[in-house]
Simulated assay, not measured.
Amino acid sequence: MIGTSRQAIWEFFGTELERRREDAGLTQVELGALVFISGAYIGQFEQAIRKPQLDIAQRIDKALGTDGIFERLCRKLINDRRYADYFVEVVELERLATRICEFAPTAIPGLLQTPDYARAVTLAANPFVTDEYVQDIVTARVERAHILKDATRPEYWVILHENVLRIPVGGDEVMARQLDHIAGLMKERVGWVTVLPYAAAAHASMSGMLQLMDFEDAPPVAYTETSFSGTLMDDPAVVKRTQRAYDLLRVAALSPEASLALIESMAEDYRRCASAT
């Protein structure tokens, strides 16, 4: 399968899963019961709408007696060098989540980034890489954001620190388009975005990106990230603490209406600065 696109391999995964399941004389519901997920999820795997986690692929192999084929396919697909090792599983979990909540203290979250913003962030962190490498990273960011356009898209809640709006990543023109993009998604009700202002004082001092994910058939998880590392957490007590921290940030943030007004105002300021240069 060298040179085959990731989506084509996921489609092969789904087709092969359907064939092996039918050969075993099982319905989607029956196979789902054997691997501890719903029959609807099996159907979505078969249609390549959703992608299974590695442990689910392993349970499918065991249930169908398929000698590890689904585990091997899954490992091939999650071993994506466009993402840091600590982030690969997060990308797969995003595709399964029913709700994603993020706090972004220093940069626009990847799911909201425009290609130009993603390119500027990548170059700032990797000034000596090739154009091909940069384009791979940008393409990966754009592909991740497709989950917000899917029919099964998750609820998406984002809190942006005011810093994020005021740091001119990529220059004034790039920032104007980036903020226009966020405002457009807010108006289309694709995401619920609010801004944590400097006036929030102690709340605004929280450092480190935070992401919370809920699932239909699995317990919630939390993910935190700094510049060079990330930690995925599923311990119920820890997840509960991060959820409380996020709730405190949410009540300190501006209202959606005030947040949209600020984002649009900042976009206009950047546009005016860009036209003046």
Rank of each mutant, 00 (worst) to 15 (best):
L93V: 07
F36I: 07
Q113S: 14
R119H: 11
S5A: 08
D67T: 10
F103H: 13
R95A: 11
E94T: 03
S38P: 01
T194D: 04
Q47G: 05
I56G: 02
Q178G: 05
I167Q: 15
S207Q: 08
S259I: 05
E216Y: 12
T27W: 09
F70Q: 02
A24T: 01
T122I: 02
D85F: 08
E264G: 08
Y223C: 01
D80G: 04
G184H: 14
D234T: 01
S38N: 10
E264Y: 06
G14I: 00
G184Y: 14
I9P: 00
T231P: 00
A118K: 03
L185C: 14
T224S: 08
P197T: 07
E257I: 04
E18F: 01
Y41V: 03
A183T: 09
A183Q: 11
D116W: 08
R75Q: 13
Y83C: 04
T226G: 15
A124N: 05
I167V: 13
D180R: 14
K149A: 15
I182F: 14
L232I: 00
Y117I: 06
M206G: 07
F36G: 11
D131L: 14
P256R: 04
F128L: 10
Y198V: 04
D61A: 08
A8D: 04
G110E: 13
E268F: 06
Y223E: 02
H161P: 08
A107D: 12
A245I: 00
A222F: 04
K187H: 13
P219K: 05
T27P: 04
L249P: 00
A202I: 10
A261S: 06
G68W: 06
D234M: 00
D85G: 06
A140C: 13
F103L: 13
V238C: 00
A145G: 15
D235H: 03
I147N: 09
M206F: 13
E132M: 09
I49Q: 12
A274W: 05
V88P: 00
D80W: 09
R153D: 09
D67Y: 14
D217I: 06
A140N: 10
E132V: 07
R153Y: 14
R72F: 05
A201G: 11
T130V: 07
G3H: 07
A124K: 05
C74W: 04
I263T: 03
D23G: 03
D67P: 03
A63L: 01
Y83D: 02
E264M: 06
L112H: 13
V88A: 10
M175P: 03
E132A: 15
T4R: 05
T122D: 03
T4K: 06
P236Q: 01
C74R: 12
Q243K: 02
L112I: 14
E22L: 06
E11Y: 00
W10N: 00
Q178R: 10
T242S: 02
A267D: 07
A97E: 09
Q53E: 10
W10R: 01
V221T: 04
M206Y: 14
T242C: 03
L73I: 12
I9Y: 02
L196T: 05
R271D: 08
R20V: 00
G25K: 03
A183V: 09
L123W: 10
R141N: 11
E225S: 06
P197D: 10
R99K: 13
L54G: 05
L96W: 05
